[in-house]
């Protein structure tokens, strides 16, 4: 039977790995988005910091909210615990202390990815090499996930990876939607018309959801459909609904040890999105509620399997 400590480390390794990939995706999408925005639109790089809840820390470290500082903070800063490099280090440290239950190659791939990231981080900070660098990171993460998918037994270690990965994904989907809503709320009325499609299109791309959305929804990119897709689609692997289903499925395989477990089956609070009116402040509040619910899921996971009072 798997050690609780090991289960916890596997879970966090998966969460951090997902965070590394998501951070790389986010920066990459911002990179594209800002080329296309009209100059008058007042969203900037700093939104990346806001999405990742890093505002305070950023201000402790930097004065100017420019591209260079934001990208540095988001990708490379080792004083920022959710920077990409920090997350990658935590992937490695967690796997290092749980190596015995993972495929040996996973350890090597993580080391390779970390070496690649640290050796080439400057490319990520400078604009010219950024695209290739971020692609390298995303591919590295997918390589590791692919290795696990292809070689890991479907045992508890696998289930804990799924718990971590899906929780992080669900969380990221809510943050992406919130970022989109925030941009539109803070823009001038005049700009919004052309802006909406651009913003929601990029929200989809950040989640790798652009093509799946087009195929599933069979409609142009628009706010309500994008929001519904990323919240409730039954088949797309990064929608909140899908991730929660996976979490419940993974949890159902895990032992109960005679304890009364808190349920991980989370009912989404009802919030209906039919038109752009529904994507305002109430929507952002709804997303905030969702994030709080996800934190409860984490607390339940910890209580069910990681904590012991003998």
């Amino acid at each position: 039977m798997m050690l609780s400590r090991v289960a916890e480390r596997i879970y966090w390794a998966a969460r951090y790995l997902e965070r590394v990939e998501n951070t790389a995706r986010l920066v990459s999408v911002y990179d594209n988005l800002l080329f296309d925005l009209p100059r008058s639109v007042n969203i900037g790089w700093f939104n990346l910091v806001v999405i990742n809840s890093g505002t305070e820390l950023f201000h402790e470290r930097y004065r100017i909210q420019d591209e260079r500082n934001v990208v540095k903070f988001t990708l490379a800063d080792d004083t920022n615990p959710s920077s990409m490099l920090s997350s990658l280090l935590l992937v490695r440290e967690n796997i290092r202390t749980a190596r015995d239950v993972l495929p040996a190659e996973a350890w090597e791939l993580v080391n390779e990815l970390r070496l690649f990231a640290t050796h080439n981080i400057q490319q990520g900070i400078n604009r010219s090499g950024r695209h290739a660098f971020l692609n390298g990171i995303i591919e590295g993460c997918q390589g590791i996930n692919g290795l696990m998918e292809g070689t890991m037994s479907r045992d508890p270690a696998w289930d804990f990876m799924r718990l971590g990965c899906n929780l992080e994904r669900a969380d990221m989907a809510t943050r992406l939607l919130d970022a989109g809503a925030a941009v539109l709320l803070t823009s001038d009325e005049d700009d919004i018309a052309g802006l909406e499609q651009l913003v929601w299109g990029n929200v989809l791309r950040s989640a790798g959801a652009y093509m799946p959305y087009r195929r599933t929804m069979r409609t142009a990119v628009n706010g309500p459909d994008v929001a519904n897709f990323l919240l409730s689609d039954e088949h797309f692997p990064r929608s909140v609904h899908f991730c929660l289903e996976r979490i419940a499925a993974a949890a159902s395989h895990l032992p109960k040890a005679g304890k009364q477990h808190r349920s991980l089956k989370l009912e989404l609070p009802p919030y209906s999105i039919e038109n752009d009116e529904h994507l305002g402040q109430a929507f952002r509040d709804h997303l905030n509620d969702l994030q709080l619910r996800l934190m409860e899921v984490h607390a339940s996971i910890a209580e069910n399997w990681f904590l012991h009072d003998n």
């Binding site: 050690l3 609780s4 289960a7 508890p156």
Partner: peptide
Amino acid sequence: SDLVVGDDDRVYMRTIGG
């Protein structure tokens, strides 16, 4: 810290299943 000796003088490890 993963191990504990019970009142029965046997050694146990703390696992996800108890």
